[in-house]
Amino acid sequence: MTNLPLELINTCAALLLLLSFAMLSQRRVLTQVDLYAAQGLVLGVSILITAWNTHQPHLYYSAGLTLLLKVLVLPFILHRLIRRLDAIWETETLLNMPSVLLIGLLLVMFAFVLAQPISELATTLTRGTLGIALAVVMLAFLMMITRRKAVTQVVGFLAMENGLLFAAASTTYGMPMVVELGVGLDVLVGMFILGIFLFHIREQFESLDLSHLESLKED
C-alpha cells in the first residue's frame, strides 16, 4: 500500500483546519458560507479517498451525501436566507480578531495534545486526523461563542458538524450507515427549522443581532 492516500487525507485535514481558521477570522457572512461550502467539499473528498482506499461501499454513499448536502444544498439555502434577510455583514465580534485567533491556536494545540494518545491506538491509516477533527470542532465552537449574528451561529453550528463528520470518517471509516443517514436527516431538518427561526427572529426583532435575544434572564 502506498502512502498516497494517507498523504492526501492529511492534506485534506490540513485544509480543513485552515478553512476553519479562515471562517473564524472572516467578517463577511456570505464569504463564511462559501468557506463552509469549501470545507464541505474538502470533507467530501477526504471521505471519498477513504472510501476508495478501504473499499467500503457505504463510505461512498456517505461521501455523496456529504457533497450533496454540504456543498450544494446547505450553502444554497444559506445564501438565499442571507440575501433575503439582508445580513451580509457581521458587525463585530465580541472579542477582537487577533485574540480570537490566538485562542484558536491554543485550542488547536490542546486538541492535538488530547488526541495524541488516542491516535496511537488507532489502527487505521488516518491516525493523525483525530486531533484535527477535534480542533475543527473546537474552532467552530469558538466561532459560535464570539459572534453576534444569528446567521453566523448557524454557520458555526454547521462547521462543527463538519468536524464531527470528519472525525467519524477518518478515525473509524464512518459511522454505520443508518446512523449517518439519521445524522444527515437531522442536520437537514435542523437547517430548515433554523431557517424558519431566522425569519421569526427577523420578524420579531427586525434584526438578526443576538443582543436582542437577551431578555430572558435572572435579574
Binding site: 453550528f157 435542523g190 427549522i193 427561526f197 421569526h200 420579531q204 436582542h212 435575544l213 431578555s215
Partner: peptide
C-alpha cells in the same frame, strides 16, 4: 420571549 427561548434551546442543545 418564546422565540428567544426556542433559539437558545436550539443552539445550546444543538451544540
Amino acid at each position: 420571549a418564546g422565540i428567544e427561548a426556542a433559539w437558545k434551546y436550539f443552539i445550546l442543545c444543538g451544540v
